[in-house]
Design a protein around this nucleic acid. Sequence first.
DNA 1: GTATATGCAAAGGGTTTGCACGGTT
DNA 2: AACCGTGCAAACCCTTTGCATATAC
Lengths: 143, 143
Amino acid sequence: MTGVPREQFESRLRERGMRVTSQRFQIYSAVNRLQHATPEAILREVDAESPGLTLSTVYRALEALEAASLVTHTHLGHAPLTYHAVQDHAHIHLVCEKCGTVVSASVDVATELRARIRDDVGFDIDPTHMAMAGLCASCGTGN
Amino acid sequence: MTGVPREQFESRLRERGMRVTSQRFQIYSAVNRLQHATPEAILREVDAESPGLTLSTVYRALEALEAASLVTHTHLGHAPLTYHAVQDHAHIHLVCEKCGTVVSASVDVATELRARIRDDVGFDIDPTHMAMAGLCASCGTGN
DNA sequence: GTATATGCAAAGGGTTTGCACGGTT
DNA sequence: AACCGTGCAAACCCTTTGCATATAC
């Protein structure tokens, strides 16, 4: 009852000559379950059910899963990297500089910006890869 | 022949009860001189002329200068923070994920995005604080 | 059987902190 | 004279790496 597409998980790894291991699947499942999954949070999540996992394994597994196009990461600023399942990743991350809250916005809001930057500077931005900083609704209004 | 406004430097610090020191002025000057000034680069730059400065002093001075609204920092992703004189800061940083080049764009390109995110999510973004990732002109065209 | 993943522990880069001394006010 | 800033060194957090063992193929 994990909801994670196991076949795709296996084929994407095998296509690249990578091995299917229980750790990788547990980590992949945890990423699918968690919201903004930091390596630490993934470790805790997996370790709660089946102890023995190591942080270095989490890092190496995430690297493998990313190479297999199963997950991506986003830079939130000073905070640790967060990982997402690729299919859940079509959103922009907004981090409040004051309270740290992370809000999501649709990638669509950046369509025009992307076109404009492409025209102006010839640079093709990926607005999901790096969060945008600012003030959230409650912090911005003097609360 | 530094070109750095010394009076403003002094008054902004004094207004906040902070002290004017030679290290702070050297660091502030270096930030004005360098492009994307990392703490390490600032240390090297200042230390070349008058040795003895420490990295921890650089960090603490930058914190002070930032509190005094003389400098700001930008997150470039995995790379160290970069500092800028506030008056030079009105630009967006575009980091190429492939070659690492940092390109600048005018803040104006994000005016509409900012309004849209404010309307949609009530979040007021500061597009200068965090860089945007993507592919630069040469890397994006298959070079 | 062979190559790749894992666990463990140690190292790495960037940043922060504690404390005594020195400089600014 | 009082307080803030500095230098030095150690600690910190996040991430990477080396090496022997275990596991997938």
